[in-house]
C-alpha cells in the first residue's frame, strides 16, 4: 500500500497545504509537525513559484514572501531531511512544472524518494502532458496526483482511470481561495470518478469552514484546505502554530 493510500485508510482524510518558506523554513517544519499533531492525515507542501497561475491572492502572496526570504528547492529538501527525523507521516509536494523541470526530473524525484515524498501535484501539467515526468516520478515512488475540474465533463473518466495516489477534485472555477458558496455539482463528479476507480478522491479550492469540511467529507474521501491556513500564517506570522493547531483540530473534528 502506498503512503498516500495510508492517509485515507482511517476515515476521511484532512489534507492541509502550506507554502514552504513562508516565515522561514524552520517555521514550515514547525507548522507541519503542528498539523500532524492536530490530526492532519496528509500534508501538501508547496514549493513556491514566482508565477503561480492557479492560485488566488492569498497563496500568491505566500509564494512571494517565501521567495523573498530566500527559499529555494534545495533548501526545501534540506528542511525535509530534518523533518524526517521527527515524523514519517505521508507528504506530497504541490508546485508548478517549471521549478521541477528546471531542477531536472531525475535529480528532483530521486531527492523526493530520499526524503520520502509520496506524491506531487502539478496544476499546470494536465492529463495530456503528464508523460512529461510521470514515469520518472514513479521510478522513485512518487505518484503524480491528477486533477479533475468542474469543466472536465467527459474527461473525468479518462483521467480517473489512470489516476494514482489520490484524485484532486477542484471544487470551483477559477483559482484557489476562500469561497462562501460552492455551486459545482460535486456529487455527480464524484459518482463518475467512483464508477471507474477506487483511488481516493479529495475536494479542494475554496474550503475553509468546518461546515464545508463536513459537507464535502460526506461525498468525498478527503478535504484539502490551503488558503485558510495560509491566512492564519499571514495574520499571526511566526506565532501561528497554536492557531493552526486549533484550526486543524476543528476541521478534522467536523469531518
Amino acid at each position: 500500500m502506498s503512503k498516500i493510500a495510508d492517509a485515507f485508510k482511517n476515515g476521511k482524510a484532512f489534507i492541509p497545504f502550506i507554502t514552504a518558506g513562508d516565515q522561514g523554513l524552520d517555521k514550515t517544519k514547525e507548522f507541519i509537525l503542528t498539523m500532524e499533531r492536530a490530526g492532519a492525515d496528509l500534508i501538501e507542501i508547496g514549493i513556491p513559484f514566482s508565477d503561480p497561475i492557479a492560485e488566488g491572492v492569498v497563496i500568491q502572496e505566500a509564494d512571494i514572501r517565501a521567495l523573498s526570504a530566500g527559499t529555494t528547492t534545495d533548501k526545501v529538501f534540506e528542511m525535509l531531511r530534518n523533518l524526517r527525523r521527527e515524523t514519517d507521516m505521508p507528504l506530497v509536494f504541490m508546485t508548478y512544472l517549471n521549478p521541477v523541470f528546471h531542477y531536472g526530473y531525475e535529480k528532483f524525484f530521486s531527492l523526493c524518494e530520499e526524503v520520502n515524498i509520496s506524491g506531487i501535484i502539478i496544476p499546470d501539467m494536465p492529463y495530456e502532458e503528464k508523460k512529461e515526468c510521470e514515469e520518472q516520478a514513479l521510478e522513485h515512488g512518487v505518484e503524480v496526483v491528477s486533477m479533475i475540474a468542474p469543466t472536465s465533463e467527459e474527461r473525468i473518466k479518462s483521467i480517473a482511470k489512470e489516476a494514482r495516489g489520490f484524485i484532486y477534485v477542484v471544487s470551483s472555477m477559477g483559482v484557489t481561495g476562500i469561497r462562501t458558496e460552492i455551486k459545482t455539482d460535486l456529487k455527480s463528479i464524484l459518482a463518475a470518478i467512483k464508477e471507474v476507480t477506487d483511488v481516493p478522491a479529495a475536494i479542494g479550492f475554496g474550503i475553509h469552514s468546518p461546515e464545508q469540511a463536513r459537507e464535502m467529507s460526506r461525498i468525498a474521501d478527503g478535504v484539502i484546505v490551503g488558503s485558510a491556513i495560509i491566512k492564519l500564517i499571514e495574520q499571526y506570522g511566526e506565532n501561528a502554530a497554536p492557531h493552526i493547531e486549533e484550526y486543524v483540530k476543528n476541521m478534522k473534528a467536523a469531518m
Partner: peptide
Amino acid sequence: YVPETLMN
C-alpha cells in the same frame, strides 16, 4: 501546460 479547468 495549463490547469485542468482550461483543458476542455
